[in-house]
Amino acid sequence: MTTLVLASTSPYRKELLQRLQLPFVTASPDIDETPLENETAAETANRLAIEKAKAVTDQFPNALIIGSDQVALLNGQQLGKPGTHERAVVQLRAMRGQTMIFHTALALLDSKTGKVWEKVVPYEIKMRDYSDELIETYLQIEKPYNCAGSAKTEGLGTILIEWMRGDDPSAIIGLPLIALTSMLNEAGLPPLGVK
């Protein structure tokens, strides 16, 4: 049987992939996530998803490897993972009352053949006009410093959101399962063993 690999250490992506009830292993891709000059948010996310999958091919030469990345776009500016409390405060203040698009890219790499399936799934989010006090309280509780845009929709971040629009609710959490299911079917590894 083909090995399925999630090239991510994200507990959220792992939890999402478990929903498909396929056995898989995880691997940590070590890549530079810096956007390239003149690269759109969708292009950055897509490139990084593919690079993450390719980064672990030496460890898994006969596998289907999943890479995923997410980049938020606010007024033409890419928002990545804040990394620190201070940067998260800056991000959340800038996002207040604004509409953003989160671009979640998915890549499925067949490491034996080199074939890559790829897709970017956009998700639109309108943030509430929240207070600085709410930002601080939220960050102290949630600590979303490894989350693009500093607001985790799968957690308490929903209190900061006015509305969300998109085709795949799992995409906003970090792994578009609807697109992944189609890719896995094409690759010959359908969830539940049935197309």
Rank of each mutant, 00 (worst) to 15 (best):
21 Q>T: 11
107 A>H: 05
76 G>V: 03
108 L>Q: 10
88 A>D: 06
30 D>A: 09
167 D>E: 15
19 R>E: 14
109 L>D: 09
158 T>V: 06
157 G>L: 00
187 A>K: 04
14 K>E: 10
178 I>Y: 14
142 E>V: 01
11 P>K: 13
106 L>V: 07
16 L>E: 02
169 P>Q: 03
115 K>T: 05
93 R>T: 11
161 I>N: 06
83 G>D: 12
62 N>L: 06
9 T>R: 15
147 C>S: 13
135 I>L: 08
19 R>I: 00
132 D>Q: 15
98 Q>P: 03
117 W>A: 01
67 G>D: 06
167 D>S: 14
4 L>G: 08
9 T>C: 07
71 V>K: 03
42 A>F: 07
152 K>D: 00
79 L>T: 07
68 S>L: 00
148 A>M: 03
134 L>F: 03
68 S>Q: 04
5 V>R: 13
87 R>V: 04
124 E>L: 08
45 A>W: 04
123 Y>H: 15
101 I>G: 02
3 T>V: 03
142 E>G: 00
22 L>C: 06
53 A>P: 14
170 S>N: 13
81 K>E: 09
184 L>Y: 09
60 F>I: 05
33 E>Q: 05
140 Q>M: 01
51 E>Q: 15
167 D>Y: 12
172 I>Y: 05
138 Y>R: 04
125 I>K: 03
96 R>W: 04
27 A>I: 05
124 E>Q: 15
87 R>E: 14
41 A>Q: 02
35 P>F: 12
194 V>D: 10
169 P>I: 00
190 P>V: 00
101 I>N: 05
92 L>A: 11
35 P>Y: 12
31 I>E: 05
34 T>C: 04
58 D>S: 15
76 G>P: 01
57 T>D: 06
29 P>W: 11
147 C>P: 04
128 R>W: 04
122 P>M: 08
89 V>H: 05
6 L>C: 11
12 Y>G: 02
37 E>G: 00
10 S>P: 05
78 Q>I: 01
28 S>A: 13
83 G>V: 03
188 G>W: 06
17 L>E: 10
56 V>E: 11
84 T>V: 02
81 K>M: 01
79 L>H: 12
48 L>F: 11
120 V>K: 11
163 W>S: 12
63 A>G: 14
9 T>Y: 07
21 Q>N: 15
184 L>I: 01
173 I>V: 11
176 P>G: 10
106 L>Y: 12
98 Q>L: 00
145 Y>M: 09
122 P>N: 08
61 P>A: 06
167 D>Q: 14
4 L>A: 10
30 D>E: 12
189 L>A: 11
155 G>T: 07
106 L>A: 06
19 R>F: 03
97 G>R: 12
156 L>K: 15
136 E>G: 02
26 T>F: 04
83 G>C: 01
19 R>L: 04
30 D>C: 06
185 N>C: 09
78 Q>V: 00
145 Y>L: 14
28 S>V: 03
11 P>A: 11
159 I>N: 08
13 R>S: 02
142 E>P: 02
143 K>P: 00
142 E>C: 02
30 D>Q: 14
150 S>T: 01
162 E>S: 12
27 A>F: 13
